[in-house]
């Protein structure tokens, strides 16, 4: 299942990448692969902007607009003028 085209904000700075493979390790949607000892983004549309790659990249090579893809969080954020934040606690799939 793929979400909207060309919306995910995920950037990889190849100059900083050492090909350690941490992003491949943590990404829940297999967005990255290592090719020729460097990480590449296979399909940006698969990215859900969870931010796992960025926070786990020891070389600061990744930049994600981290956030929750959750409608009620987005609406609440718009209404209160704050950052969208998840307010629920579902099982494994919420926000």
């Amino acid at each position: 299942m793929k979400y909207l085209k060309n919306v995910a904000q995920l950037e990889l700075d190849s100059d900083k990448c050492t090909g350690c493979g941490m992003c491949v390790e943590v990404c829940p949607h297999a967005v990255f692969i290592i090719e020729n000892k460097i990480a590449i983004i296979t399909e940006r549309d698969l990215c859900m902007e969870c931010g796992a790659c960025q926070i786990n990249c020891p070389f600061n090579a990744l930049n994600v607009r981290k956030g929750v893809g959750c409608a009620s969080a987005v609406i609440k954020g718009k209404l209160t003028g704050s950052e969208p934040s998840c307010g629920c606690s579902d099982t494994s799939n919420c926000c």
Binding site: L46, R65, A71
Partner: peptide
């Protein structure tokens, strides 16, 4: 349905904002 993005496992913040 839009609200279900919060329970889905593959929607992104940028996408959910765009939809709204």
């Amino acid at each position: 349905a839009y609200n279900f993005t919060g329970s889905s496992t593959y929607t992104s913040l940028s996408g959910v904002e765009k939809e709204l």
